[in-house]
């Protein structure tokens, strides 16, 4: 088990390094931040000196090596755009993104699973048809369009919910939360739906398919033959077995919810990591972009690592395979 963990950690570190390297290779194509850092009346000499002082004139692998050298010491430098430490910026922005991602995930699960179950049990009902159409829209419409449509209906036409921002926030130590105020909760609704809609439809379709699959199995027929009530059959036996793959997929999707929050955050001016990233790209703010990409890579790596560990714990066949391979 220990060997497995170590091997996994080494692999994860390699993934992170490769992500960083590719990112730095791409940064050459996002432009030159020095143009924005110095005003329009700066001299070419000023620009050249700033570029040299920041090491931006060096080849990307050298810049990358310097970044890694400092990153392993927990030092990400200053944002070129705001001249504030990247770590501080992330600390300010992370709560917003995590709360949004969590709300979106809860929404996706809380709505997606019941819809999926219903659609599996009442296959011919009109409501099921409605659910399937909704899920088709959720899968096919791009996120920014869903966000704009929701703003149009609920903010502009109905005036029920705010169209942007996070509302009032409360500071709990270093964590600023919008979950404790009425305006914060109201502000969370539209972005969470926008971000979670795709995952919701995915979970609904998955639940439905799994449920249909399970309902065809022998033990369900057996349960019926024993004269159990529908309720017991559906919810005690079928649903439980359905949920195993659903939860696995939902867990894996959490990473992509955090990563794809970029678009939702841009549309709703949600002050999270994604918005910070987009603003940084427009400024070619290399330290922030690099740290963000590494952080997202880390999120995916950690989630996959945890899932691997769980599988390993749950499924004895994996252990046997490993033993055989050795």
């Amino acid at each position: 088990m220990l060997a497995f963990c170590i091997r996994r950690i080494v692999q994860a570190a390699a993934v992170m390094l490769v992500v960083g390297l590719i990112a730095f290779a791409l940064f050459r194509f996002v432009g030159d931040p020095v143009v924005f850092m110095l005003g329009q009346d700066a001299t070419p000499e000023d620009r050249a000196r700033m570029s040299a002082d920041l090491g931006l004139d060096q080849p990307f692998h050298l810049q990358y090596a310097r970044f890694v050298g400092r990153a392993v010491q927990g030092e990400f430098g200053l944002s070129l755009r705001q001249l504030r430490p990247v770590s501080t910026l992330f600390r300010e922005r992370l709560p917003a993104t995590l709360e949004l991602a969590l709300a979106a995930a809860v929404f996706a699960l809380a709505v997606g699973i019941p819809m999926g179950v219903y659609a599996a049990l009442r296959r011919r009902s009109w409501l099921t048809q409605v659910f399937l159409v909704v899920s088709l829209i959720g899968v096919s419409l791009p996120t920014f369009l869903i966000g704009i449509l929701l703003i149009l209906v609920f903010a502009v036409q109905l005036n029920w919910l705010p169209s942007f921002g996070r509302g009032e926030t409360v500071a709990l130590g270093a964590w600023s939360t919008g979950l404790l105020t009425a305006s914060g909760l109201k502000a969370l609704i539209l972005p969470a739906i926008t971000l979670g809609l795709f995952q919701m439809t995915l979970i609904m379709r998955l639940t439905r398919a799994e449920m249909l699959e399970v309902l065809r199995t022998e033990y369900i027929r057996f349960a019926r033959a024993r004269g159990l009530t529908d309720r017991a059959v559906y919810f005690r036996h079928a649903l439980r077995n359905t949920l195993v793959p659903v939860i696995t997929v939902a867990g894996l999707q959490l990473g992509s919810i955090i990563a794809f929050a970029i678009i939702t955050e841009t549309v709703f001016q949600w002050p999270g990591m994604g918005l910070l990233f987009i603003q940084s790209v427009m400024f070619a703010d290399v330290p922030v972009m690099a740290a963000y990409l590494c952080l997202i890579a880390l999120v995916f790596v950690v989630i996959n690592f945890v899932v691997d560990l769980l599988y390993h714990a749950v499924d004895p066949r994996l252990r046997l395979e490993n033993a055989a391979a050795r």
Binding site: I148, I151, L152, A155, V156, S163, F164, T266, V267, F268, Q269, L275, I278, Q279
Partner: peptide, 8 residues
């Protein structure tokens, strides 16, 4: 940042 959101 987003034009449509600002107008909304």
């Amino acid at each position: 940042g987003n034009d449509a959101t600002r107008v909304a």
